[in-house]
């Protein structure tokens, strides 16, 4: 069932159009940086963007930081919101459930397909970022990269920590995916499910900026998204990374539980 869902997802042109659109923003930023030679100061603008003019191998990280706040979660919400509601809207949900596999397995298969989509998307952003970065900007083949803490990182360390960042960003998107998937079981409209997840995302981002909401900030789904920067401190600051992983796990478990409770008892009419 998982293989069927994966084939279905990656055979759709709109999946690849989404991924292509997602990559267009970092590429545009890279071109603008190359043309104008104007990078933001360190600590300003998207993380690591300041360093790419002198070290193009850091552009995969800058590309992730560029798409992380909005583009990537929108893409994830669109695909996840479509997962169940899209089948219902298209009238195919009844036929899917006619198979003996059961609703719980269908939900799990949809979730695994989503995780694979997020991972593929993030990896493609990183690869495109690497190709664009090393093509347009200087590459420090021998020199070391300066970490956020002012120490030097070897190219191997940079590569390893970039891989950790890719994994972390992928997992950070699972909360949004779980929200969209839960909403997708509540409605037959994929657009409504996507909008619901985006409302949660925007609400979380807004509350995070308010001092008055500081008590609930540790529980906001977007709270630890930027913590992939902590892989580039020296020593690595694991505290927020671990909390970010735990928080996403809690959201996935609770929302999938809710999706399961709703979907397995729902009357399927379409």
């Amino acid at each position: 069932m998982i293989a069927v869902e994966l084939r279905k997802l990656f055979r759709r042109p709109r999946t690849w159009i989404t991924i292509a659109l997602l990559n267009s923003l970092p590429v545009l930023v890279a071109v603008l940086l190359k043309v104008t030679d104007l990078a933001p100061r360190p600590g300003e603008g998207p993380a690591f963007l300041s360093a790419v003019l002198t070290n193009g191998t850091l552009f995969p990280l800058a590309a992730l930081a560029i798409v992380l706040p909005l583009f990537l979660p929108i893409a994830v919400a669109v695909v996840a919101g479509d997962s169940v509601a899209g089948e219902a809207q298209g009238g195919t949900l009844r036929y899917l459930l006619a198979r003996p596999a059961g609703r719980t397995r269908l939900l799990v298969a949809k979730l695994v397909a989503l995780v694979v989509f997020v991972l593929v998307t993030v990896v493609i952003v990183a690869i495109v970022g690497y190709v664009v970065g090393t093509t347009l900007f200087e590459v420090q083949s021998l020199g070391a990269t300066t970490a956020v803490s002012g120490t030097s990182l070897t190219p191997d360390q940079v590569a390893g920590r970039t891989l950790l960042s890719i994994g972390y960003v992928t997992i950070s998107m699972l909360g949004v995916a779980a929200f969209a998937m839960f909403f997708s079981t509540l409605t037959d409209s994929p657009q409504l499910a996507t909008l619901g997840a985006l409302a949660v995302l925007i609400g979380s981002s807004l509350l995070f900026t308010l001092d008055a909401a500081s008590d609930i900030a540790p529980y906001l789904p977007t709270r630890y998204w930027l913590s992939f920067v902590d892989f580039f401190r020296d020593p690595i600051l694991w505290r927020n990374v671990v909390r970010g992983l735990g928080l996403q796990a809690v959201y996935v478990v609770v929302l999938l539980g809710a999706a399961w409770a709703n979907f397995t008892t729902k009357d399927i009419t379409s």
Partner: peptide, 15 residues
């Protein structure tokens, strides 16, 4: 039908 929601609500309350 409702036991699933009870499980989810209990899990959420504990968390």
């Amino acid at each position: 039908r409702g036991w699933r929601w009870v499980v989810v609500a209990l899990g959420l309350a504990v968390l």
